[in-house]
Design a protein around this nucleic acid. Structure first.
Length: 579
DNA sequence: CTTAGGG
DNA sequence: CCCTAAG
């Protein structure tokens, strides 16, 4: 990342007044900007910040912008040579790095490591990212930290550096303890930081581990497998067993680190007087973040590192020759993707959605998926031979990974139906049919509703299934009869034929209708509003409004309704009276 | 599982 | 539409 051209005493200075990390005035480092090669002064903090941002996408930019002097690089190389091999762990951790006896190697590793998802670093700008190079140092060298002297904030930073995540705890003692633990617990995340002094590398036993941390992260990334393990352990437990073991074997320190983190997490939770339960989403994000921090994000890194994908490596990969394995992995990937291009990984995994896709896929397209699934599984080392959708666990696991690129292609390709694209037409048809056949829903229902959705909706998301007028009408009617909020009822009765359209959908639609009724109606008077995307007949809107008013005015007693049991009918009648 | 809401 | 928190 940035090359610190001239440092000197800075660290110490910082250390001394640890309490005031912001004293930017005093601490400056020169960072070389790749673009013009000029040196730009930056405070430690700035640098740190930058580095923090370094994961994934951003990292790329940074990498591109910052350049390391060849000189320094060489130095690093030397160091690597000396240190690298010596430390087994290092080797394991950073396969790509280890072999680095030559610049070329390093470069490669650097590129790979650098969490640059989509765009491969071009020339690698000659110098591998410092990050990579540094890593080994960390593991090997140990620095003392004066936690005592650190401010809370710094402690936080350190914490982050150590565990790869932030903490909200403000207790200095706690932080110190945690950090200490983390460090001692095999998480020898370097508390040491290296500073380049001209052509030499100087190690400073200082708290400013930011750099170290980053490096660490990078290294983690390389590992790849580890992260996966992480994820696996968190989300599930199933197929990764082997993998875990292997990785554990291989990646001692890393896993330990994870452990630390987890442990820590628990601790933290306990300590943090249990605030409010974090949302799943939140958790996800956190973990994601964590991952990133550790390894510059799962996706990119893995991808870069020759798809050291999840399980495959875990299972097959011999403990020792990580490097060798790496290659094989790549190959495998190629076979998998078919396209052979690394692109697949590039695409970001869409959080949340994927799983269903996969499952659906498997269900609906046994043929296609069959292979895919199988392959994947194989790759993953999943035990379960059968590509059953039930395999939530397993599926999930790889689903996430797969979904991104190739998996989806197959999906997207086919399914789309006329309805989707020609909503209008379809709608009309449907309407006609419906209007005409209102009574016999069975007939068309299957065609319109069931079939298409099953095929389409099933496989791919519910990608926008335009509401037909008839549907809207039904919905309105339903609301009229059962009242808003009794979606399940409405769904059951009015939308029996429409297998899609869940109660939630109804609810949402109703919400929209309401909105429309209030916004659009007025507009009507003054003039048509913008997009008449779904020109809902004003009549309907009016009715919606009506209903809405009713609801508002006569907040029907749900309990009453409910109590009446099947009274849906009765209620309906009652209501119909109103209407 | 169903609702209500936020995104 | 999706995702969740609450019931």
């Amino acid at each position: 990342m940035e090359t610190v051209a001239g440092v000197g005493g800075i660290d110490e200075a910082k250390l001394e007044d640890g309490a005031a990390p912001k004293n930017s005035s005093a601490v400056y480092k020169l960072v070389r900007v790749k673009g013009d090669g000029r040196l730009v002064p930056a405070t430690d903090e700035e640098v740190m910040e930058v580095e923090d941002m370094l994961d994934c996408d951003k990292s790329l930019h940074m990498a591109e912008n910052l350049e390391v002097d060849a000189e320094k690089l060489n130095t690093l190389d030397d160091i690597l040579e000396n240190l690298g091999t010596a430390n087994a762990r290092v080797e394991n951790v950073a396969p790509s790095v280890v072999p680095s006896s030559t610049d070329g190697d390093i470069d490669q590793s650097g590129d790979r490591e650098c969490p640059s998802p989509i765009v491969p670093i071009e020339s690698g700008s000659t110098t591998s990212t410092v990050c990579t190079s540094w890593k080994p140092d960390f593991s090997k060298l140990k620095g003392e930290i004066c936690l005592e002297k650190l401010s809370v904030r710094e402690l936080h930073e350190t914490f982050k550096a150590t565990f790869g995540r932030e903490t909200s705890v403000k207790d200095k003692q706690w932080l110190k303890r945690r950090i200490a633990m983390g460090l001692s617990n095999s998480c020898d995340v370097s508390t040491t930081s290296f500073t380049f002094e001209d052509s030499g590398v100087v190690t400073k036993g200082k708290k400013d581990c930011c750099k170290s941390v980053d490096c660490t992260s990078a290294e983690d990334t390389v590992v790849g497998g580890r992260h996966d393990n992480c994820g696996a352990s968190v989300g599930d437990d199933e197929p990764m067993g082997d993998h875990m073991n292997v990785s554990g074997k291989i990646l001692q320190s890393p896993s330990s680190e994870d452990t630390c983190a987890n442990e820590d997490l628990h601790m933290e939770q306990r300590a943090a007087k249990r605030v409010r339960k974090p949302t799943k989403r939140y958790i996800e994000e956190v973990s994601e973040t964590e991952s990133r921090e550790y390894g510059g994000k799962l996706n990119s890194p893995i991808k870069n590192s020759g798809h050291s994908q999840p399980s495959p490596q875990g299972h097959v990969r011999p403990v020792q020759n990580v490097r060798l394995d790496a290659r094989p992995l790549v190959t495998r990937q190629d076979s998998l993707g078919g396209s052979g291009v690394q692109v697949p990984y590039v695409s970001r995994i869409r959080r949340g959605r994927p799983r269903e896709n996969l499952v659906a896929l498997m269900e609906l397209q046994p043929g296609n998926m069959g292979m895919t699934a199988r392959v994947v599984k194989k790759a993953l080392g999943v035990n379960n031979p059968c590509p059953q959708p039930n395999n939530e666990r397993g599926n999930k696991v790889f689903k996430a990974r797969m979904s991104p690129g190739w998996v989806q292609h197959p999906l997207i390709k086919k399914p789309k139906k006329d309805e989707q694209y020609f909503g209008r037409k379809a709608n009309n048809l449907e309407n006609n049919m419906e209007l005409e056949d209102m009574g016999s829903s069975g007939d068309y229902s299957d065609d319109n509703a069931s079939t298409p959705p099953a095929a389409i909706g099933g496989i791919r998301r519910k990608h926008h299934r335009p509401w037909t007028l008839s549907e809207v009408v039904k919905l309105v009617e339903g609301v009229a009869t059962y009242g808003a909020g009794r979606w399940s009822e409405i769904k059951r009765i009015s939308f029996a034929s429409y297998s899609y359209r869940t109660s939630v959908d109804l609810k949402d639609k109703w919400r929209n209708l309401l909105r429309a009724s209030f916004t659009q109606l007025p507009a009507e008077n003054g003039g048509p509003k913008k997009h008449a995307s779904a020109p809902i007949p004003t009549s309907i809107l009016l009715r919606v409004r009506e209903l809405a008013d009713m609801e508002a005015q006569v907040p029907r007693d749900l309990s009453f309704i409910k109590s009446t049991g099947l009274s849906g009918r009765r209620v309906q009648e009652k209501r119909s009276g109103y209407l």
